[in-house]
């Protein structure tokens, strides 16, 4: 379960560049990304949070039942925790993370809807 920001209007909402979950930067720093902390390692590092998340996102999804939701599946967040997700996130993950994904043979899909297949 991701931390649900108390205020939707907050300008500080940030979306994870890898999994698109939306949280407050404080939550990212405190608990890391609920889905991809293992690879992004944002916990406790404000710098890391600001490089792996962004305020530039569009559309908010409340994923209530990720397993059953088509929306979550389409957004490729079906395996992730429940929470608020962004429909579209502008920007790319830092290069080191991208390299790491490559090393693990994981295909990186930017969340800015640039490459649809």
């Amino acid at each position: 379960m991701a931390a649900i920001p108390p205020q939707a209007r907050s300008k500080h909402l940030r979306a994870c560049l890898l999994c698109s979950v939306i949280q407050l930067p404080a939550d990212f720093k405190k608990g890391g990304c609920p889905n991809c902390e293992e690879i992004l390692q944002m916990k406790g590092s404000g710098d890391r949070v600001s490089s792996c998340t962004t305020t530039q996102f569009d559309g908010v999804i409340a994923v209530i039942d990720p397993d059953a939701s088509w929306v979550a599946r389409w957004q490729r967040t079906a395996k992730y925790v429940r929470g608020m997700y962004a429909v579209r996130v502008t920007g790319r993950i830092p290069e080191d993370v991208e390299l790491e994904l490559e090393r693990r043979n994981i295909k990186y899909r930017p969340r800015d809807q640039t490459d649809q297949d």
């Binding site: 379960m1 649900i4 920001p5 205020q7 939707a8 209007r9 569009d58 559309g59 908010v60 999804i61 409340a62 994923v63 209530i64 039942d65 059953a68 939701s69 088509w70 929306v71 979550a72 429940r82 929470g83 608020m84 429909v87």
Partner: peptide, 29 residues
Amino acid sequence: RDIVFSLMRKAIDVEYSARPLSILSAFQR
């Protein structure tokens, strides 16, 4: 956006109540 957030919070609140929400997701563009 507020309403989407409200739906999420509501879903969590009533999750273990007698009448949990049966929606799967909600979004806004």
